[in-house]
């Protein structure tokens, strides 16, 4: 029975190699997640979206234990976003408008990617790590999170070997075709960042500001007056929020679905007259809208168009 013993060892080693591959990938993702939360950096990166290429600058600084971030485009309209632990300020100088929104409450609300169960992630994606490569003049390790089916996109990522900072991210479909890319051209990590670099180029006084009057209120999923008759395989409804329409007074219901990595948002708002069914494609983001019983349903997410459509069509009001 030597062979039987060999076989069992072989399979054990195989399973161990799979488990180690998952663990290794997850450890790297965890490190990336921590880097996104703990590092000061200042970089210029490219956002490639279809035929559009944007050059943007992102600055991040931890000051007295509080994180401050600023993102702005180096071309075109001088829009920018400034974010701290509680709020997100969106500047739209071309419209003379701004919006202050509340950040997701990670402590009590949305579980986030790294709190997701690995089983859920590996049910829908194949994780693997690759070789070291050079990105933005730094050594980076290649991580793949590839979709197991056509209901979702995957990621090819390159994380800084030294710090774990995400240096390059490519959203890919099942055939590994690039849909959207972010890539740092230059990044300085851990340098002293002057406070002035975190100040907006447009004065807040120049804009008309719209604020969230109160933070989104989370309601038990079962209490929502809406339900899904079916969902694309792998997706679950994970949260339901009630909130105001950004830059508006209208109350919305915000349903959040996820497959462990990809997120899909469903916004439901009351309307006075029915709206046509519409599909919008904005780079990697697909959006689907339709009217149901005097409500406008809008489904958005970095997922294939068919997925937002399936989710939008499956939503019905409870009787």
């Amino acid at each position: 029975m030597k062979l039987a013993g060999h076989l069992l060892i072989a399979f054990s080693l195989l399973w161990l190699s799979y488990a180690w591959a998952d663990e290794q990938s997850l450890a790297l993702l965890k490190r990336m997640n921590q880097a996104a939360g703990n590092l000061d950096f200042d970089g210029v990166f490219l956002h490639v979206n279809g035929n559009n290429i944007e050059t943007l600058r992102v600055i991040r600084k931890i000051q007295n234990g509080k994180v401050l971030e600023r993102l702005y485009s180096l071309n075109g309209n001088p829009r920018e976003v400034i974010r701290d632990a509680e709020r997100v300020w969106c500047f739209m100088p071309e419209r003379k408008m701004g919006h202050v929104g509340m950040r997701a409450d990670k402590q009590t609300g949305f579980p986030g990617f790294m709190a997701s169960n690995l089983d859920k992630l590996t049910e829908n994606y194949i994780l693997s790590t690759g070789d070291f490569e050079r990105v933005a003049d730094r050594n980076a390790v290649h991580i793949q999170i590839l979709p197991r089916d056509a209901y979702r996109y995957g990621y090819e990522m390159w994380a800084d070997k030294e710090t774990g900072l995400l240096l390059k991210s490519v959203l890919v479909d099942q055939q590994k075709n690039a849909i959207e890319q972010y890539m740092f051209a230059i990044v300085n990590i851990g340098l002293n960042i002057p406070d002035s670099d975190l100040q907006p180029m447009t004065s807040k006084d120049e804009l008309e500001w719209h604020n969230d009057k109160k933070p989104p209120e989370m309601i038990p999923v079962g209490d929502s007056p809406w339900q899904f008759n079916s969902l694309p395989a792998g997706y679950d409804l994970i949260n339901v929020l009630q909130r105001a329409m950004p830059m508006g007074e209208q109350q919305l219901e915000h349903m959040i679905l996820s497959d462990g990595l990809a997120g899909v948002s469903v916004f439901i708002e009351k309307i006075n007259k029915p709206s046509d069914v519409s599909m919008e494609k904005m780079g990697a983001v697909n959006a689907y809208s339709r009217s149901v019983d005097g409500n406008l349903i809008t489904v958005v997410g970095e997922v294939p168009a068919a997925v937002v459509k399936l989710i939008g069509e499956a939503l019905t009001r409870k009787h």
């Binding site: 993102l71 976003v81 949305f110 995400l166 991210s169 948002s265 958005v300």
Partner: peptide
């Protein structure tokens, strides 16, 4: 709506502010 969506996207934990590029 995407600004709100970004805050609740699980992948946003890894990508940080990068998805706001679409808005900016």
């Amino acid at each position: 709506l995407l600004v709100e969506h970004n805050e609740y996207n699980p992948a946003g934990d890894m990508t940080g502010m990068l998805p706001y590029s679409r808005f900016v």
